[in-house]
Amino acid sequence: MKHIYFIVTLLISTVAFSQIPTGYYDSASGTGFALKTQLKDIIDNNNDGLATEFIAQDLGYSALYVTYELSDVDLYYENNGTLLDMYSEGVMQNPDNTSTNLPDAYEYTYGINQDDGTMGTAEGQRYNREHTIPQSSFNSGSPMRNDAHFVIPSDKYVNGQRGNLPYGFVDTTTQFDEYSNGTKRGENTTTGIGSSYNGDVFEPIDEFKGDIARMFFFFATRYEDQISGFNYVMFDGSSNQAIDQPFLDLLYNWHHNDPVSQREIDRNNAIFTRQDNRNPFIDNPQFVFEIWQSSLSVDEFQNQNIVKMYPNPANGSFVNIDSNQDLVAEVYDILGKKVKVQTINANQKQLNISGLSKGVYLVKLTSENGSITKKLIKQ
């Protein structure tokens, strides 16, 4: 018990002195992928001549366990100083983005249940280090392998079950595996955003989907100059967009639907005290849209001059739809659930999106001559 109290006290005192330094993001003034490069310069391990320069530190693989004693302590759910594992923490995210605690099936105490090369054949035996971007994608190279911003403490068994699977939505109408807190492994859903990927995926619970997304955005930025050489199904082989389109749409929605939490802020601060770099997408969530806007959507779409929808992205409550035919507009959320139906005709040429949350949607426009389906961004 003394060990747990010591960790809690140390974390509180450390976080209190590790906020965003004055001027840290002053050089991040661009837009699009130029902004991503500017952020890379801020958080990488090169001396880029910035007025406020912090050089990212590679502390080595074993140091991750030390970092976790500051960055991944449960002060938010049971609030008992045990390890916070996103794959076993019992918590349910409510529609208003508050959380309801659920009983944990098991808990880990730092140092006592750490992986020693044994066990891990079932949940609750050992914890180890989970690379949200698998090590195999970058051949276990450093500093990637040792970067706590995307390498998280995890139950050893569940970590092994995930393997190098991409993240996605599991199709619960087929056979799938479910772990103690509702985390799933199974076939990717065939509807909604990201449905174009065919294969098994791994789905964290809603409470931590945004956390995972912001880790991916960090990785694509921090390792921008190397990522085109990394081999992973969630990457597109480029240094700019970096994340393959179906997964970019998916992660963007996760980012919006699960906003930055106090837990993420504290984790970011704690890692900064160890590695001397930060996750910009926790400090400023708007960076995601500012960087990837051109990849997330187009300004308008047309079908042989029959239909036109704009603006896209949409910042307000309405989208204009111009057509020489009557249309039925059906709006689908990220899981393919129909969330709105509206008739578009000469008397009503605007699609009301005021009731939709920010994120990516599919809009199916149907006339007597056929239908088209395109992506819509509500920003």
Rank of each mutant, 00 (worst) to 15 (best):
M1G: 01
H3Q: 12
I4P: 15
Q19M: 11
S27Q: 05
L35C: 12
L35W: 12
L39G: 06
D41G: 08
I42Y: 07
D44W: 01
N45A: 11
N46D: 08
D48T: 08
T52E: 02
I55M: 02
D58N: 12
D58P: 07
E69F: 14
L75K: 08
Y77C: 11
N80Q: 05
N80R: 11
D85S: 03
M92D: 06
N94L: 14
D96Y: 06
L102F: 07
D104E: 03
E107Q: 10
I112H: 13
N113Q: 03
D116E: 07
M119A: 09
G120A: 10
T121W: 09
T121P: 05
G124K: 14
N128T: 15
S136Y: 03
N139D: 12
S140T: 08
M144R: 01
R145Q: 08
I152N: 13
P153C: 09
S154G: 00
S154A: 00
S154V: 00
D155P: 09
D155Y: 15
N159D: 02
P166E: 09
F169D: 06
Y179Q: 04
S180Y: 13
G182W: 14
G186V: 13
E187T: 14
T190F: 07
S196V: 03
Y197R: 10
F202H: 02
F202N: 07
P204F: 14
P204Y: 06
E207M: 01
K209P: 00
A213F: 07
R214Q: 01
R214L: 11
F217P: 10
F219E: 08
R222K: 10
Y223D: 14
E224S: 05
E224A: 15
F230C: 02
D236A: 04
S239A: 06
N240S: 12
D244E: 15
F247D: 01
S261Y: 11
Q262T: 02
I265K: 11
R278Q: 11
Q304A: 01
A314D: 01
V319L: 07
V319M: 15
N320M: 07
N320G: 03
S323W: 10
Q325S: 14
V328Q: 04
A346E: 11
Q348M: 06
K349S: 10
N352Y: 12
N352E: 02
N352D: 09
S354M: 08
L356R: 10
S357P: 12
S357G: 07
G359I: 00
S367R: 04
E368W: 14
G370F: 09
T373N: 11
K378F: 04
